[in-house]
Design a protein around this nucleic acid. Sequence first.
DNA 1: AGATAGTACGAACGATCGTGCTAACTTGTC
DNA 2: GACAAGTTAGCACGATCGTTCGTACTATCT
Lengths: 210, 210
Amino acid sequence: MTEVPPPHPRRTRTDGDRTRNLILDNAVRLATVAGLDGLSIGALADATGVSKSGVYAHFGSKEELQLETVRAARQLFVDVVVAPALAQDGLERLRALCESFLAYVEQRTLPGGCFFAAAAAELGGRPGPVRERVAAYQDEWIDLLTQAAEQARSRRELGPDSDVGLLVFELNAVVVAANTAFILHDDPTVIDRARAVVSRVISGYQAPPA
Amino acid sequence: MTEVPPPHPRRTRTDGDRTRNLILDNAVRLATVAGLDGLSIGALADATGVSKSGVYAHFGSKEELQLETVRAARQLFVDVVVAPALAQDGLERLRALCESFLAYVEQRTLPGGCFFAAAAAELGGRPGPVRERVAAYQDEWIDLLTQAAEQARSRRELGPDSDVGLLVFELNAVVVAANTAFILHDDPTVIDRARAVVSRVISGYQAPPA
DNA sequence: AGATAGTACGAACGATCGTGCTAACTTGTC
DNA sequence: GACAAGTTAGCACGATCGTTCGTACTATCT
Protein backbone atom coordinates (compact mmCIF):
# COMPACT_ATOMS: atom_id res chain seq x y z
CA MET A 1 0.00 0.00 0.00
CA THR A 2 1.45 3.32 -0.98
CA GLU A 3 0.99 6.03 1.61
CA VAL A 4 -1.06 8.83 0.23
CA PRO A 5 0.42 12.13 1.44
CA PRO A 6 -2.15 14.36 3.13
CA PRO A 7 -3.37 17.19 0.95
CA HIS A 8 -2.03 20.64 1.63
CA PRO A 9 -4.12 22.62 4.06
CA ARG A 10 -5.78 25.71 2.71
CA ARG A 11 -3.55 28.68 2.06
CA THR A 12 -5.13 32.06 1.96
CA ARG A 13 -3.26 35.25 1.16
CA THR A 14 -3.50 36.49 4.69
CA ASP A 15 -1.93 33.21 5.72
CA GLY A 16 1.02 34.33 3.65
CA ASP A 17 1.48 37.38 5.82
CA ARG A 18 1.12 35.33 8.96
CA THR A 19 3.75 32.86 7.81
CA ARG A 20 6.03 35.70 6.85
CA ASN A 21 5.71 37.27 10.26
CA LEU A 22 6.28 33.93 11.92
CA ILE A 23 9.46 33.50 9.94
CA LEU A 24 10.72 36.99 10.71
CA ASP A 25 9.89 36.61 14.38
CA ASN A 26 12.05 33.52 14.61
CA ALA A 27 14.70 35.10 12.41
CA VAL A 28 15.13 38.03 14.81
CA ARG A 29 15.45 35.67 17.75
CA LEU A 30 17.83 33.30 16.01
CA ALA A 31 19.98 36.12 14.68
CA THR A 32 20.75 37.44 18.15
CA VAL A 33 22.30 34.08 18.99
CA ALA A 34 23.75 32.81 15.71
CA GLY A 35 24.32 36.16 14.02
CA LEU A 36 22.78 37.46 10.82
CA ASP A 37 25.24 35.39 8.84
CA GLY A 38 24.91 32.29 10.96
CA LEU A 39 21.16 32.55 10.50
CA SER A 40 20.59 29.69 8.07
CA ILE A 41 17.51 29.06 6.01
CA GLY A 42 17.43 25.40 6.94
CA ALA A 43 17.49 26.14 10.66
CA LEU A 44 14.84 28.80 10.17
CA ALA A 45 12.67 26.28 8.33
CA ASP A 46 13.01 23.78 11.18
CA ALA A 47 12.22 26.41 13.81
CA THR A 48 9.07 27.57 12.05
CA GLY A 49 7.83 24.27 10.64
CA VAL A 50 7.81 25.77 7.16
CA SER A 51 9.73 24.02 4.41
CA LYS A 52 13.05 25.39 3.28
CA SER A 53 11.71 26.49 -0.07
CA GLY A 54 8.65 27.86 1.68
CA VAL A 55 10.91 30.17 3.66
CA TYR A 56 12.86 31.01 0.59
CA ALA A 57 9.77 31.92 -1.41
CA HIS A 58 9.04 34.87 0.86
CA PHE A 59 12.45 36.43 0.31
CA GLY A 60 14.25 36.03 -2.98
CA SER A 61 17.66 35.66 -1.42
CA LYS A 62 19.41 35.39 1.90
CA GLU A 63 20.42 39.03 1.77
CA GLU A 64 16.78 40.03 1.37
CA LEU A 65 15.92 37.85 4.35
CA GLN A 66 18.62 39.59 6.37
CA LEU A 67 17.36 43.02 5.36
CA GLU A 68 13.80 42.18 6.35
CA THR A 69 15.02 40.66 9.60
CA VAL A 70 16.79 43.91 10.44
CA ARG A 71 13.62 45.81 9.65
CA ALA A 72 11.58 43.52 11.88
CA ALA A 73 14.11 43.93 14.67
CA ARG A 74 13.77 47.70 14.39
CA GLN A 75 10.02 47.42 14.72
CA LEU A 76 10.40 45.32 17.85
CA PHE A 77 12.87 47.83 19.26
CA VAL A 78 10.52 50.71 18.57
CA ASP A 79 7.61 48.92 20.22
CA VAL A 80 9.46 47.70 23.28
CA VAL A 81 12.07 50.37 23.95
CA VAL A 82 11.15 53.60 22.24
CA ALA A 83 7.38 53.84 22.41
CA PRO A 84 7.00 53.60 26.21
CA ALA A 85 9.53 56.39 26.71
CA LEU A 86 7.78 58.84 24.41
CA ALA A 87 5.23 59.53 27.12
CA GLN A 88 7.82 61.76 28.76
CA ASP A 89 9.80 64.76 27.58
CA GLY A 90 13.21 66.27 27.99
CA LEU A 91 15.45 64.84 30.65
CA GLU A 92 12.78 62.41 31.81
CA ARG A 93 12.51 61.01 28.31
CA LEU A 94 16.28 60.58 28.19
CA ARG A 95 16.21 58.67 31.46
CA ALA A 96 13.24 56.62 30.31
CA LEU A 97 14.96 55.63 27.06
CA CYS A 98 18.00 54.35 28.94
CA GLU A 99 15.83 52.57 31.47
CA SER A 100 13.61 50.84 28.94
CA PHE A 101 16.66 49.76 26.98
CA LEU A 102 18.12 48.22 30.12
CA ALA A 103 14.81 46.54 30.92
CA TYR A 104 14.61 45.20 27.37
CA VAL A 105 17.98 43.56 27.93
CA GLU A 106 17.32 42.46 31.50
CA GLN A 107 14.05 40.74 30.65
CA ARG A 108 15.71 38.77 27.87
CA THR A 109 13.29 39.98 25.27
CA LEU A 110 15.69 38.43 22.80
CA PRO A 111 17.85 35.47 23.79
CA GLY A 112 21.12 37.03 22.62
CA GLY A 113 20.48 40.51 23.99
CA CYS A 114 20.10 43.65 21.92
CA PHE A 115 19.76 42.77 18.25
CA PHE A 116 21.51 45.87 17.02
CA ALA A 117 24.44 45.57 19.35
CA ALA A 118 25.05 42.07 18.02
CA ALA A 119 24.46 43.09 14.41
CA ALA A 120 26.72 46.14 14.62
CA ALA A 121 29.59 44.07 15.97
CA GLU A 122 29.08 41.34 13.41
CA LEU A 123 28.67 43.47 10.30
CA GLY A 124 30.96 46.30 11.26
CA GLY A 125 33.82 45.23 9.05
CA ARG A 126 31.73 44.00 6.14
CA PRO A 127 30.35 46.60 3.73
CA GLY A 128 27.04 45.97 2.05
CA PRO A 129 23.38 46.90 2.19
CA VAL A 130 22.71 45.00 5.41
CA ARG A 131 25.43 46.84 7.26
CA GLU A 132 24.15 50.15 5.94
CA ARG A 133 20.65 49.46 7.15
CA VAL A 134 21.91 48.50 10.59
CA ALA A 135 23.98 51.68 10.70
CA ALA A 136 21.00 53.78 9.64
CA TYR A 137 18.76 52.38 12.37
CA GLN A 138 21.54 52.86 14.89
CA ASP A 139 21.67 56.51 13.84
CA GLU A 140 17.94 56.79 14.42
CA TRP A 141 18.47 55.69 18.00
CA ILE A 142 21.32 58.12 18.55
CA ASP A 143 19.25 60.93 17.04
CA LEU A 144 16.38 60.09 19.34
CA LEU A 145 18.64 60.34 22.38
CA THR A 146 20.15 63.54 21.02
CA GLN A 147 16.81 65.24 20.52
CA ALA A 148 15.70 64.36 24.03
CA ALA A 149 18.96 65.69 25.44
CA GLU A 150 18.71 68.89 23.46
CA GLN A 151 15.20 69.47 24.65
CA ALA A 152 16.42 68.91 28.18
CA ARG A 153 19.12 71.50 27.70
CA SER A 154 16.76 74.05 26.22
CA ARG A 155 14.54 73.48 29.24
CA ARG A 156 17.54 74.16 31.47
CA GLU A 157 17.39 70.65 32.89
CA LEU A 158 20.98 70.35 31.74
CA GLY A 159 23.79 72.83 32.13
CA PRO A 160 23.73 75.46 29.37
CA ASP A 161 27.24 74.58 28.23
CA SER A 162 26.61 70.82 28.15
CA ASP A 163 28.04 69.00 25.15
CA VAL A 164 24.97 67.02 24.17
CA GLY A 165 26.91 64.89 21.73
CA LEU A 166 29.27 63.69 24.43
CA LEU A 167 26.45 63.01 26.85
CA VAL A 168 24.60 60.88 24.32
CA PHE A 169 27.75 59.05 23.31
CA GLU A 170 28.41 58.26 26.95
CA LEU A 171 24.90 57.11 27.77
CA ASN A 172 24.68 54.87 24.72
CA ALA A 173 28.10 53.43 25.53
CA VAL A 174 26.99 52.55 29.04
CA VAL A 175 23.76 50.80 28.16
CA VAL A 176 25.35 48.86 25.29
CA ALA A 177 28.23 47.79 27.52
CA ALA A 178 25.67 46.60 30.06
CA ASN A 179 24.06 44.50 27.34
CA THR A 180 27.38 42.92 26.37
CA ALA A 181 28.41 42.17 29.94
CA PHE A 182 24.99 40.82 30.83
CA ILE A 183 25.00 38.41 27.91
CA LEU A 184 28.61 37.37 28.26
CA HIS A 185 28.61 36.77 32.01
CA ASP A 186 24.96 35.96 32.69
CA ASP A 187 25.21 38.45 35.50
CA PRO A 188 22.03 40.40 36.29
CA THR A 189 23.83 42.78 38.64
CA VAL A 190 25.54 44.59 35.76
CA ILE A 191 22.20 46.02 34.77
CA ASP A 192 21.87 47.69 38.15
CA ARG A 193 25.42 48.91 37.93
CA ALA A 194 24.55 50.42 34.58
CA ARG A 195 21.52 52.13 36.12
CA ALA A 196 23.81 53.69 38.69
CA VAL A 197 26.21 54.86 36.00
CA VAL A 198 23.39 56.36 33.94
CA SER A 199 22.24 58.37 36.93
CA ARG A 200 25.74 59.48 37.70
CA VAL A 201 26.46 60.53 34.12
CA ILE A 202 23.26 62.52 33.82
CA SER A 203 23.77 64.24 37.15
CA GLY A 204 27.21 65.25 35.94
CA TYR A 205 25.57 67.19 33.12
CA GLN A 206 22.70 68.63 35.11
CA ALA A 207 22.35 72.34 35.65
CA PRO A 208 23.62 73.49 39.02
CA PRO A 209 20.75 74.60 41.26
CA ALA A 210 20.34 78.34 40.98
CA MET B 1 52.48 12.12 -20.27
CA THR B 2 51.43 12.32 -16.68
CA GLU B 3 52.48 15.48 -14.92
CA VAL B 4 54.92 14.72 -12.17
CA PRO B 5 54.08 16.87 -9.16
CA PRO B 6 57.04 18.79 -7.76
CA PRO B 7 58.58 17.26 -4.63
CA HIS B 8 57.78 18.83 -1.31
CA PRO B 9 60.26 21.45 -0.16
CA ARG B 10 62.22 20.75 2.99
CA ARG B 11 60.34 21.02 6.26
CA THR B 12 62.28 21.51 9.43
CA ARG B 13 60.66 21.26 12.83
CA THR B 14 60.99 24.95 13.50
CA ASP B 15 59.13 25.45 10.24
CA GLY B 16 56.18 23.88 12.00
CA ASP B 17 56.11 26.63 14.59
CA ARG B 18 56.47 29.27 11.93
CA THR B 19 53.57 27.87 9.95
CA ARG B 20 51.48 27.66 13.07
CA ASN B 21 52.15 31.30 13.89
CA LEU B 22 51.40 32.29 10.32
CA ILE B 23 48.07 30.51 10.54
CA LEU B 24 47.14 32.05 13.87
CA ASP B 25 48.17 35.49 12.69
CA ASN B 26 45.78 35.27 9.78
CA ALA B 27 43.13 33.64 11.94
CA VAL B 28 43.08 36.60 14.34
CA ARG B 29 42.75 39.03 11.44
CA LEU B 30 40.08 37.03 9.65
CA ALA B 31 38.09 36.45 12.82
CA THR B 32 37.65 40.18 13.43
CA VAL B 33 35.88 40.43 10.08
CA ALA B 34 34.13 37.08 9.62
CA GLY B 35 33.75 36.14 13.28
CA LEU B 36 35.18 33.16 15.10
CA ASP B 37 32.45 31.00 13.65
CA GLY B 38 32.66 32.41 10.16
CA LEU B 39 36.39 31.72 10.27
CA SER B 40 36.60 28.71 7.97
CA ILE B 41 39.50 26.35 7.57
CA GLY B 42 39.33 26.52 3.80
CA ALA B 43 39.54 30.31 3.76
CA LEU B 44 42.36 30.18 6.26
CA ALA B 45 44.21 27.72 4.04
CA ASP B 46 43.83 30.01 1.04
CA ALA B 47 44.98 33.05 3.00
CA THR B 48 48.12 31.37 4.28
CA GLY B 49 49.01 29.22 1.27
CA VAL B 50 48.95 26.11 3.44
CA SER B 51 46.74 23.22 2.43
CA LYS B 52 43.48 22.61 4.22
CA SER B 53 44.72 19.48 5.91
CA GLY B 54 47.98 21.27 6.68
CA VAL B 55 46.02 23.83 8.66
CA TYR B 56 43.95 21.13 10.24
CA ALA B 57 46.96 19.10 11.35
CA HIS B 58 48.08 21.89 13.70
CA PHE B 59 44.78 21.92 15.58
CA GLY B 60 42.80 18.74 16.01
CA SER B 61 39.43 20.45 15.54
CA LYS B 62 37.85 23.74 14.70
CA GLU B 63 37.13 24.44 18.33
CA GLU B 64 40.80 23.98 19.16
CA LEU B 65 41.66 26.39 16.37
CA GLN B 66 39.23 28.91 17.81
CA LEU B 67 40.68 28.53 21.29
CA GLU B 68 44.21 29.06 20.04
CA THR B 69 43.07 32.01 17.96
CA VAL B 70 41.62 33.63 21.07
CA ARG B 71 44.87 32.99 22.89
CA ALA B 72 46.86 34.56 20.05
CA ALA B 73 44.54 37.57 20.04
CA ARG B 74 45.15 38.02 23.75
CA GLN B 75 48.90 37.99 23.18
CA LEU B 76 48.54 40.67 20.51
CA PHE B 77 46.36 42.73 22.83
CA VAL B 78 48.90 42.46 25.63
CA ASP B 79 51.75 43.48 23.36
CA VAL B 80 50.00 46.37 21.66
CA VAL B 81 47.64 47.76 24.29
CA VAL B 82 48.71 46.66 27.74
CA ALA B 83 52.50 46.58 27.69
CA PRO B 84 53.10 50.21 26.66
CA ALA B 85 50.84 51.45 29.44
CA LEU B 86 52.62 49.55 32.19
CA ALA B 87 55.39 52.14 32.13
CA GLN B 88 53.08 54.38 34.14
CA ASP B 89 51.28 53.99 37.44
CA GLY B 90 48.02 54.93 39.06
CA LEU B 91 45.86 57.43 37.26
CA GLU B 92 48.40 57.89 34.49
CA ARG B 93 48.32 54.16 33.81
CA LEU B 94 44.56 54.25 33.67
CA ARG B 95 44.68 57.06 31.12
CA ALA B 96 47.41 55.28 29.17
CA LEU B 97 45.40 52.06 28.98
CA CYS B 98 42.40 53.88 27.54
CA GLU B 99 44.56 55.82 25.14
CA SER B 100 46.47 52.83 23.83
CA PHE B 101 43.22 50.94 23.37
CA LEU B 102 41.83 53.81 21.33
CA ALA B 103 45.07 54.00 19.32
CA TYR B 104 44.93 50.25 18.69
CA VAL B 105 41.48 50.73 17.22
CA GLU B 106 42.28 53.94 15.38
CA GLN B 107 45.35 52.52 13.65
CA ARG B 108 43.36 49.55 12.42
CA THR B 109 45.71 47.07 13.97
CA LEU B 110 43.04 44.52 13.11
CA PRO B 111 40.70 45.06 10.16
CA GLY B 112 37.53 44.48 12.15
CA GLY B 113 38.51 46.48 15.21
CA CYS B 114 39.01 45.05 18.67
CA PHE B 115 39.06 41.26 18.54
CA PHE B 116 37.48 40.80 21.94
CA ALA B 117 34.68 43.25 21.35
CA ALA B 118 33.73 41.30 18.25
CA ALA B 119 34.14 37.93 19.94
CA ALA B 120 32.15 38.92 23.02
CA ALA B 121 29.22 40.05 20.91
CA GLU B 122 29.36 36.96 18.74
CA LEU B 123 29.74 34.32 21.44
CA GLY B 124 27.74 36.03 24.16
CA GLY B 125 24.67 33.86 23.76
CA ARG B 126 26.46 30.61 23.01
CA PRO B 127 27.89 28.67 25.95
CA GLY B 128 31.05 26.65 25.48
CA PRO B 129 34.77 26.67 26.11
CA VAL B 130 35.49 29.37 23.56
CA ARG B 131 33.06 31.77 25.14
CA GLU B 132 34.51 31.05 28.56
CA ARG B 133 38.00 31.83 27.41
CA VAL B 134 36.88 35.09 25.85
CA ALA B 135 35.08 35.99 29.07
CA ALA B 136 38.13 35.14 31.15
CA TYR B 137 40.42 37.36 29.07
CA GLN B 138 37.86 40.14 29.20
CA ASP B 139 37.94 39.85 32.99
CA GLU B 140 41.72 40.17 32.90
CA TRP B 141 41.33 43.49 31.13
CA ILE B 142 38.73 44.75 33.59
CA ASP B 143 40.91 43.65 36.50
CA LEU B 144 43.85 45.52 35.02
CA LEU B 145 41.81 48.70 34.79
CA THR B 146 40.48 48.15 38.29
CA GLN B 147 43.90 47.72 39.82
CA ALA B 148 45.16 50.88 38.19
CA ALA B 149 42.12 52.79 39.40
CA GLU B 150 42.49 51.47 42.92
CA GLN B 151 46.10 52.45 43.01
CA ALA B 152 45.06 55.88 41.82
CA ARG B 153 42.55 56.14 44.62
CA SER B 154 44.99 55.02 47.27
CA ARG B 155 47.36 57.69 45.93
CA ARG B 156 44.57 60.23 46.34
CA GLU B 157 44.53 60.92 42.62
CA LEU B 158 40.85 60.02 42.79
CA GLY B 159 38.30 61.10 45.32
CA PRO B 160 38.41 58.94 48.46
CA ASP B 161 34.77 57.92 48.06
CA SER B 162 35.09 57.04 44.36
CA ASP B 163 33.33 53.87 43.27
CA VAL B 164 36.17 52.27 41.34
CA GLY B 165 33.89 49.61 39.86
CA LEU B 166 31.63 52.20 38.31
CA LEU B 167 34.54 54.23 36.97
CA VAL B 168 36.05 51.18 35.28
CA PHE B 169 32.70 50.08 33.90
CA GLU B 170 32.22 53.53 32.44
CA LEU B 171 35.68 53.81 30.93
CA ASN B 172 35.51 50.38 29.36
CA ALA B 173 32.06 51.15 27.99
CA VAL B 174 33.31 54.32 26.34
CA VAL B 175 36.34 52.85 24.60
CA VAL B 176 34.42 49.79 23.41
CA ALA B 177 31.61 51.98 22.10
CA ALA B 178 34.22 54.02 20.25
CA ASN B 179 35.48 50.81 18.65
CA THR B 180 31.99 49.82 17.52
CA ALA B 181 31.13 53.22 16.12
CA PHE B 182 34.50 53.56 14.40
CA ILE B 183 34.10 50.23 12.64
CA LEU B 184 30.43 50.65 11.80
CA HIS B 185 30.62 54.20 10.45
CA ASP B 186 34.24 54.40 9.27
CA ASP B 187 34.37 57.68 11.14
CA PRO B 188 37.74 58.59 12.68
CA THR B 189 36.27 61.50 14.66
CA VAL B 190 34.54 59.19 17.11
CA ILE B 191 37.93 58.23 18.50
CA ASP B 192 38.59 61.85 19.41
CA ARG B 193 35.13 62.14 20.89
CA ALA B 194 35.92 59.10 22.99
CA ARG B 195 39.16 60.71 24.13
CA ALA B 196 37.18 63.71 25.28
CA VAL B 197 34.72 61.51 27.15
CA VAL B 198 37.51 59.57 28.84
CA SER B 199 39.01 62.80 30.11
CA ARG B 200 35.65 64.05 31.28
CA VAL B 201 34.80 60.83 33.07
CA ILE B 202 38.12 60.67 34.87
CA SER B 203 37.96 64.30 35.89
CA GLY B 204 34.55 63.60 37.38
CA TYR B 205 36.15 61.10 39.73
CA GLN B 206 39.24 63.10 40.53
CA ALA B 207 39.93 64.33 44.01
CA PRO B 208 39.00 67.95 44.55
CA PRO B 209 42.11 70.09 45.00
CA ALA B 210 42.83 70.47 48.65
C1' DA C 1 -15.21 30.04 -16.67
C1' DG C 2 -10.61 31.05 -17.44
C1' DA C 3 -6.39 33.47 -16.57
C1' DT C 4 -3.22 35.27 -13.15
C1' DA C 5 -0.83 35.85 -9.01
C1' DG C 6 0.28 34.16 -4.51
C1' DT C 7 1.59 30.35 -1.26
C1' DA C 8 3.90 26.31 -0.07
C1' DC C 9 5.98 21.76 -0.88
C1' DG C 10 9.60 18.19 -2.30
C1' DA C 11 13.61 17.13 -4.80
C1' DA C 12 17.78 18.25 -6.38
C1' DC C 13 21.90 21.22 -7.82
C1' DG C 14 26.83 22.71 -6.94
C1' DA C 15 29.60 24.62 -3.46
C1' DT C 16 31.64 24.62 0.89
C1' DC C 17 31.80 23.07 5.50
C1' DG C 18 34.54 20.20 9.19
C1' DT C 19 36.85 15.97 9.34
C1' DG C 20 39.45 11.56 8.46
C1' DC C 21 42.91 8.75 6.09
C1' DT C 22 47.10 7.84 3.57
C1' DA C 23 51.47 8.92 1.85
C1' DA C 24 55.72 11.63 1.30
C1' DC C 25 59.38 13.87 3.45
C1' DT C 26 61.90 15.96 7.22
C1' DT C 27 64.62 15.91 11.63
C1' DG C 28 66.34 13.77 15.75
C1' DT C 29 67.42 9.46 18.48
C1' DC C 30 69.05 4.92 19.05
C1' DG D 1 71.16 2.85 9.18
C1' DA D 2 66.79 1.77 11.17
C1' DC D 3 63.08 4.11 13.36
C1' DA D 4 59.93 7.19 15.77
C1' DA D 5 58.00 11.74 15.74
C1' DG D 6 56.56 15.69 13.39
C1' DT D 7 54.97 18.37 9.20
C1' DT D 8 52.52 18.89 5.05
C1' DA D 9 49.80 17.53 0.86
C1' DG D 10 46.14 15.03 -1.58
C1' DC D 11 41.87 12.90 -1.74
C1' DA D 12 37.40 11.80 -0.26
C1' DC D 13 33.52 11.41 3.11
C1' DG D 14 28.92 13.07 4.75
C1' DA D 15 26.55 17.10 6.08
C1' DT D 16 24.86 21.54 5.33
C1' DC D 17 24.82 25.74 2.81
C1' DG D 18 22.07 28.99 -0.54
C1' DT D 19 19.59 28.42 -4.56
C1' DT D 20 16.60 26.65 -8.45
C1' DC D 21 12.98 24.03 -10.44
C1' DG D 22 8.69 21.85 -11.07
C1' DT D 23 4.31 21.09 -9.07
C1' DA D 24 -0.11 21.74 -6.60
C1' DC D 25 -3.39 24.42 -4.66
C1' DT D 26 -6.02 28.87 -3.50
C1' DA D 27 -7.76 33.43 -4.07
C1' DT D 28 -8.62 37.23 -6.98
C1' DC D 29 -9.53 39.44 -11.33
C1' DT D 30 -11.51 39.47 -16.07
